[in-house]
Write a protein that binds this DNA or RNA. Sequence first.
DNA 1: AAACTGATTGACAGACCAGTCAATCAAAGG
DNA 2: CCTTTGATTGACTGGTCTGTCAATCAGTTT
Lengths: 227, 227
Amino acid sequence: MTEDPAPVDAPERPPRTMSRDARRVQLIEATIHTIAAQGLAWTTLTQVARRAGLSHGLILWHFETKENLFRETLSYLAEEYHLNWQVALAAAGPHPADQLRAMMAADFNAPIIEPGRLAAWCAFWGEAQSRPLYQQVCGDKDDAYIRQLERICAALTPPAGTALDPVLAGRMLRLVVQGTWLDMMTTAPTYSVAEAQRTVEAALAMCFPDYFAAAPTAERPAPTPAG
Amino acid sequence: MTEDPAPVDAPERPPRTMSRDARRVQLIEATIHTIAAQGLAWTTLTQVARRAGLSHGLILWHFETKENLFRETLSYLAEEYHLNWQVALAAAGPHPADQLRAMMAADFNAPIIEPGRLAAWCAFWGEAQSRPLYQQVCGDKDDAYIRQLERICAALTPPAGTALDPVLAGRMLRLVVQGTWLDMMTTAPTYSVAEAQRTVEAALAMCFPDYFAAAPTAERPAPTPAG
DNA sequence: AAACTGATTGACAGACCAGTCAATCAAAGG
DNA sequence: CCTTTGATTGACTGGTCTGTCAATCAGTTT
């Protein structure tokens, strides 16, 4: 038994010591879920460690400080979100309407709107005003998202001056998505994802009626389909 | 000196001992501003007390527990918000379009969007998922606001089935307002109130073009006014 | 003016938590 | 087999915070 009787190539159970990156991701995931369960304020290193099945000293070995653990957690979420819409955009067709639809749909991809993640986002927003953390970590990526939306909206806006300003259109679409996220957190009977998506589709139809069909009514089936 | 040499009717300086209600309001205001400055998580009783120029023991005398201080602070904000839109609604004309405009405008009244208050709201939203506090305190009032908006939107929606569903319209308008609030907190160069209002006006024009004029473009002046 | 009542203070206790550190453990290399 | 290096643990420390409480203070009543 001094030598391994069989090679343990298959990663069936996690090894006692992990690679630096893998362990960091594990701890970040534990942090996200602890924040979702306890709230950012009441998240302690010991709780995160317990959820990961590790000691709290290890967190400080990997992240040096609690503040830094939070910074890297937010950065991880921001990167995940950024990649999510960029991949969706790259996979969409060349028409701006398809691209816009893809970006909006991406915001409701299952891994993105997992309750734990939404809760963590909300918790970080709540601290955005009083601590510079949010701006430092997410400022650039938020800007990139906003500018991309505006660019697509501009491409959908006819050159004549009567239509909706693309900056306003982009902002409104972003606010509706962001707002439905917040709704899913703060309203009592967590509202269905389908309902949230229907709201976004309605917003798209309102902003660019030439490219998007009007959504049906919210609850009851539409009495007569409109051509 | 055993008797007051002059009646101190004029409330020039606050008396050492205040009426229960006045003291509670003073402490709640101090709590709001401490939350805005430090964040909900890092708000301590001693900091709130110092801001009010009182001792931290007094907070516990009036509110029994820190959790309860937060509950009453949120309740105070919710009541203030609720009264604000109800007063605006009562002062508006009988036409639903005027009422809708009044409600939207009320959400940008100076005392409501004071930075300290917005920051406090965001902080409480951030905790809404993990702690039942928000739902307990604001659930009913949020519902009342939503139902009122839907009622007005329904009154503006023609009976024919082709128009935007009033539930979706009301929700979208609410999301845009809520979203601009969040934007004012999380985006770097705190965006101007005028810009936020213009966004809301654009949303109104999109939802009910028969009643609301399209807003001008976001930054540059509109090249030609559209009839 | 003495007694009384409610408001206010500040010292204190108990609990908890972030961060330090020495010891232990596991994998890899010589 | 021994050494080295990096990962991991858990006890410990210093500090902070909430909540308690006895003492004090300021009005009000007797």
